[in-house]
């Protein structure tokens, strides 16, 4: 292998067909309100964690739906589960359970349960 001083840049494109959508499937089954998110961003706007960091629950949910889950595991830990997002959500998405179910899906994938 030759060192060229650069590498093939990673594609930013979401490759939906290849992406792992297990977390999404798991959350959709266990918290159906996950399906009704319209990405309005109210959750992120009110988020306690987003006050201090770039944690973006709206985007996180979307990334899970698209199967872009590489960073989700670390990102999701930033949530304090305080519930402001749930109170603010206009679509009644059970955001706290979405977080909990994402956690569980990640753990189950690591344990090869799903």
């Amino acid at each position: 292998m030759i060192e060229f001083g650069y590498n093939i840049a990673k594609d930013r494109q979401i490759d939906f067909d290849k992406n792992d959508k297990r977390i999404s499937t798991y959350v959709r089954e266990n918290e159906p309100s996950f399906k009704t998110c319209i990405s309005c961003g109210t959750c992120t706007a009110t988020c306690s964690a987003a006050n201090f960091t770039d944690f973006n629950f709206r985007k996180l949910q979307l990334m899970v739906r698209r199967g872009e889950t590489l960073e989700v595991k670390e990102e999701i830990k930033k949530c304090m589960l305080c519930g402001k997002c749930y109170l603010a959500c206009p679509r009644g998405v059970n955001t706290r359970n979405v977080i909990i179910q994402i956690n569980q899906a990640i753990e189950k994938i690591e344990n090869h349960d799903i």
């Binding site: 306690s48 006050n51 201090f52 830990k77 304090m80 589960l81 305080c82 519930g83 706290r96 909990i100």
Partner: peptide, 23 residues
Amino acid sequence: EDGSVCCGRPLMMNGKDKMAAEL
């Protein structure tokens, strides 16, 4: 005043004691 750091109770209610302890 400028936004809360959660008290930790919601985490504890959901069995996440280690996370709560940090807050």
